[in-house]
Design a protein around this nucleic acid. Sequence first.
DNA 1: CTTGATGCAAAGACTTTGCATTCAG
DNA 2: CTGAATGCAAAGTCTTTGCATCAAG
Lengths: 144, 144
Amino acid sequence: MSIPGADRKHSKKRDAILAKVQSTDSHPGAQWVYDQLKSDIPDLSLATVYRNINLFRQEGAVASVGVIDGEERFDGRVDPHSHFVCGGCGRVFDYDTPELSAEFSKVLENLKDLAYTQEGFVIDYRKTVFNGLCPECAKAKTTA
Amino acid sequence: MSIPGADRKHSKKRDAILAKVQSTDSHPGAQWVYDQLKSDIPDLSLATVYRNINLFRQEGAVASVGVIDGEERFDGRVDPHSHFVCGGCGRVFDYDTPELSAEFSKVLENLKDLAYTQEGFVIDYRKTVFNGLCPECAKAKTTA
DNA sequence: CTTGATGCAAAGACTTTGCATTCAG
DNA sequence: CTGAATGCAAAGTCTTTGCATCAAG
């Protein structure tokens, strides 16, 4: 068996794409990454952004937050943490507190054993998303 | 302000679509619902399935599990509960144990207060998804 | 050189929408 | 009758893919 990515060549565009995703906590979609890089790399193609982000996801360098308003959103942070998705503006926020993390870790560990032994499910990871309104949208709604 | 749905007419197709979504725990997509009903209702259109499911979601009769492998999946169960998505076959399972529910409810309640008072986030609901392999896919992988 | 990486445009997959028709109240 | 509900097909969005070209090793 070969080492994943061993037969891969360097690519400035690839590096730039990964760096851009990791540089923000806005949980961007492919189009955003493309727009951000386009000025610096005029001959960049959206297809390349898609191709590389998919690579990153496969090798675990980037995670998917899920599809929001029809567009897949990514995260350069790959350690386990929750997200908050605003139903008003669609923005995604990292959302974890020490208590939350501890609580969830505990629950997940317990479940991993329970699930595997009792039902045969093999848990890989957990995704928790809180939905609601961000401070700005909440205020806007109240004012309106 | 008018009552939501007050100016709505009855529709056998609409009833059938909702009933079908609520009749299963397979967390179906629009296409599946369409396929299931097509034999009984030959003149059913996929567009009608989409239109009605969107209605149900707006009024809270149906929930979205999220987009899995490019297709949005729905749930006729709208009470809070977690899901398990198999990365192998894409099937979605309801996944909750008494402990899990209690634990999550507690966490969510605490967070609702914390979040709102400290940061201004208004939490509406939580979505938790466990990803991994279902018993069958886990066994298949081991065997292979 | 040899093969991976990319641009471009076409193709795909899923969902929404416009319009004429049908059906419920 | 009047307006909601639907079928059908066209249109939309986001994402993937084929192919010729460019570039890294």
